[in-house]
Simulated scan of single mutants.
Amino acid sequence: MPVPRLTEVLAELDALWPPERAEQWDAVGTVCGDPDAEIDRVLFAVDPVQEIAEEAIRLGAQLVVTHHPLYLRGTTSVAASHFKGRVVHTLIKHDIALHVAHTNADTADPGVSDALAGALGLRVIGPLVPENGLGRICELDPPETLAAFATRAAERLPATAQGVRVAGDPDATVRRVAVSGGSGDSLFDAVRAAGVDAFLTADLRHHPASEAVQYSPLGLVDAAHWATEWPWCELAAAQLDEISDRRGWNLRVHVSKTVTDPWAAHHTSSSAHHTSPGAPN
């Protein structure tokens, strides 16, 4: 069976997640790698961090595909004295290429939110934002309470220190759900327009979340950013596996299970009464 070259693999990845679909501010595509290098093992991960580079070395991978960019805001140096430069040096020293599919994977069909919906066992009925394909509107069959839906998310998504936070009436019935992998509190207008019962995403900030639950009985389920995007790695790996089989390539595809969520621990707040500064005791 033939071993593909990097340029051949990247052509297939760009067909799955066209770089022109990325947001203008994004940094997608190939960070490092020899186009003529032979690729027989690929590793998918969410974050291009040192732990993933070292995992690729142990695995013998020649290509790492991550969802998050390494240099989102650009750089003038890849010196190994900086942690990002160290990743680049590590990869190049071991002849490992790095390729990024970020917002172009968010809006793909299937994409990040499809993978999230699949992990939760939801039936996708359409995009949340039809203009760019971001997010998904899904249905629960049969319906369940918000508390049960949050438990579903906690059980089916990868475990993180944050776990899952919930806002809204735990006994409210959830039939239709909006999901968006990664940071989603910029999508509340679309969520309200969709008329869903609950919204599952990550990185919800205080004010948008507070306004959302005051505005309507919308239930909110806030999971860790990494956990909502990791299912895409499995979807992407399966897509590349199918391409490899169709092309007759000798290519093995792996998904990293290394938890690169930055939060390491979670402590539940005390139930003791707290008073604000200057308030009478």
Rank of each mutant, 00 (worst) to 15 (best):
T260I: 05
T160N: 11
W263N: 15
G29R: 05
A147H: 02
T173I: 09
S77N: 07
W226K: 02
P170M: 06
A150M: 10
E139G: 00
K84L: 07
V259H: 04
G248W: 13
S183G: 01
P208Y: 05
L218R: 09
E211V: 08
N281K: 08
H94L: 04
R165A: 12
E234L: 10
A11H: 05
A190Y: 06
V64N: 01
P170I: 06
V31F: 00
G111T: 04
L72N: 01
S77H: 10
A61D: 04
H94S: 04
R58I: 09
D203C: 13
L220C: 10
A272M: 00
C32D: 06
S186A: 15
D95A: 04
R73I: 02
V42A: 05
I39V: 11
R176Q: 09
L16T: 10
G33Q: 01
L91Q: 01
T66Y: 03
D185C: 12
V42Y: 00
H254T: 11
E51V: 08
P4T: 07
A101G: 06
A56N: 02
D261R: 11
V46R: 03
E54G: 11
N132D: 14
T145K: 11
N104Y: 11
A193Q: 14
P158H: 15
S210Y: 12
V259F: 04
W263Q: 14
D26S: 05
S269T: 04
E23A: 11
S216H: 07
Q239I: 13
I137K: 01
V9G: 01
S244V: 09
A178E: 01
G135C: 09
E211R: 13
A167I: 08
V3C: 10
P262R: 15
E155V: 12
T76N: 08
Y71L: 15
P4E: 05
H94Q: 07
V124Y: 01
A198H: 06
A27M: 12
R246S: 11
L70C: 08
H225Y: 10
A194R: 08
I92W: 02
E131P: 06
G118W: 02
A61Q: 07
A237C: 09
L98G: 00
R252Y: 10
A108C: 13
R205H: 09
P2E: 14
G181Q: 13
H266K: 07
V221H: 04
G121R: 07
A119M: 04
P19F: 07
D26K: 06
E242T: 15
W230N: 06
R136Q: 08
L16Q: 13
S276H: 12
S244F: 05
T260C: 07
E20C: 11
G168R: 02
V65N: 00
R73M: 04
L157K: 15
A45G: 00
C138Q: 06
L187T: 06
T201S: 13
A101R: 03
V174C: 05
V49T: 12
V129Q: 05
A198M: 07
A167G: 09
L187D: 03
D222C: 11
